[in-house]
Nucleic acid binder design. Structure first.
Length: 422
RNA sequence: GCCAGGGUAGUGUAGUGGUUAGCAUUCGGGACUGUGGAUCCCGCAGCCCGGGUUCGAAUCCCGGCCCUGGCCCCA
């Protein structure tokens, strides 16, 4: 039997790396005051089509259950978490700060760093329209990367409302902006030109737009952008928002970012701030503000900002750098030597495990020489050899697997003796 | 969905029409009936699936499945 296409079996170093990433994220989320939530792996199909339209159905694992309900495996976690908020937490004290981990599913062709089932994590701040909320989400993302030792990541920050206001000024309104936003996001000159022609954008506005999306760099580019949109108060306000967010980001202690006004995230639900995080050219996280999604999904209008992380991609980046998570070593392996000692071995293993030691025991009925080789192969620090003769005298042999030194220890002292060893 | 390159024991590989499909490693056992990492011996285990061509296919052809990567899109 083969695995379904685009899925993976996880074990060994790779799984250890993923768990390490999850643990680190979980710690940071908690430190920032987020509460963990978990939602079902499948949801009503509508939850995902509402925000992105029918076009996403072909990238969904959508199906009907035995009662003809239209369902889909979740392709991402923001919409389910927002659904949870609307149905269970709408009157919780604001802001509602949630974090989550979970598998997501997309029916796409697998390729590098892209699978049909993958792990996402993330956070959402629901109920705050303040710039400091946007800034906290960015600061948290920065902190996670630094905590993981991936401080050479690239953080790009942009603002979709800025671009949309410029388009609105040029006479392109509402959803007519979407194809243009996608073209901007693709960074393909030809495609953008075609879309702008199609929307009959005037040369002057096109020039303004092109100048804006080409802006990239430090806070200095905000000044240039301000000059460009001087005559457009709404666009200027969007820039002011971005400026304020970045001030707060710096106060939070995150200095390392690039302003990139060409980030559009066309298909997504982002309304204002947008940001993306890259490692070695691979996007590992993305986020932003989405002030319309909650209403779209049937809740009362409410602002929200959040970030999603590609857990597998981040774990892969760690492995790619040789940053392997050291495996916890067994404290000892209990080895029966001779007849009639097995039950005593099982008792010893139980006692040691109950005081928190990492203990294995030979379950293969091996002879002592093979059993010691097994203990060695498992990387155990020590072995406890339980022999017929020693046991009759109420003793067992304690062997240091590294040095090979052995000592006889009274059976009664064994637990305390081992507990004392660091 | 499309494009390119691939699929031989658990892992890594040799094998281009006729081989008991070889090697290394891993795993289990033994030499070594209470002492490991060495050595030697034994054992388990494989041609992705289905058709076709042929006296004969791991090998050639077709289809599918899966893998690696690219397009689209995205984590």
């Amino acid at each position: 039997m083969q695995r379904p296409k685009g899925t993976r079996d996880l074990f060994g170093e790779e799984l250890a790396s993923i768990r390490h990433v999850e643990r680190t994220m979980s710690d940071v989320f908690k430190r920032y005051g987020y509460e963990e939530v978990e939602t079902p792996a499948f949801e009503p199909l509508e939850l995902f089509t509402k925000k992105s339209g029918e076009s996403v159905v072909k990238q969904l694992y959508a199906f009907k259950d035995k009662s003809d309900r239209e369902l889909a495996l979740r392709p991402e976690l923001t919409a389910p978490v927002i659904r949870l908020y609307i149905s269970q937490l709408r009157s919780a004290p604001k802001p509602v700060k949630l974090c989550y981990f979970g598998n997501c599913f997309r029916y796409e062709e697998p390729q590098a760093q892209r699978w049909r089932q993958f792990l996402q994590s993330g956070t959402e701040i629901i109920g705050s329209a303040q710039a400091e909320a946007d800034a906290e989400v960015i600061a948290l993302s920065d902190e996670i990367m630094r905590e993981l030792g991936l401080s050479d990541y690239e953080l790009r920050i942009g603002h979709t409302r800025l671009l949309r206001e410029v388009l609105a000024h040029a006479g392109v309104k509402g959803s007519a902006q979407d194809p243009i936003m996608r073209a901007i996001d693709s960074r393909e000159e030809v495609r953008l030109r075609a879309e702008l022609d199609c929307a009959q954008v005037k040369a002057r506005d096109e020039k303004l737009l092109r100048s804006l999306i080409a802006l990239r760099g430090s806070v200095k580019v905000l000044r240039q952008a301000e000059k460009l949109v001087a005559g457009l108060p709404k666009a200027k306000a969007a820039l002011g928002d971005l400026h304020e967010i970045l001030e707060h980001v710096r106060s939070f202690g995150a200095e390392k970012f690039t302003i990139d006004l060409g980030i559009a995230r066309g298909l997504e639900y982002y309304t204002d701030l947008v940001f993306e995080l890259y490692i070695d050219g691979v996007q590992v996280a993305g986020g932003g503000r989405y002030d319309e999604l909650i209403e779209l999904l049937g809740g009362d209008p409410c602002s929200a900002v959040g970030v999603g992380f590609g857990v597998d991609r981040i774990a892969r980046a760690l492995l790619g750098r040789g940053m392997i998570v050291p495996r916890e070593r067994l404290d000892c392996v209990v080895l029966p030597a001779g007849e009639g000692v097995l039950s005593e071995c099982l008792k010893i293993a139980g006692e040691l495990r109950r005081v928190g030691l990492l203990v294995d025991i030979d379950l293969m009925g091996r002879k002592l020489s093979k059993a010691i080789a097994y203990a060695d192969a498992q990387g155990a620090k020590g072995a406890i050899i339980v022999g017929t003769k020693d046991l009759k005298e109420g003793k067992v042999t304690l062997r240091d697997m590294r040095t090979g030194k052995q000592e006889l220890v009274a059976r009664r002292e064994l637990v305390n003796k081992l507990k004392a060893v660091p």
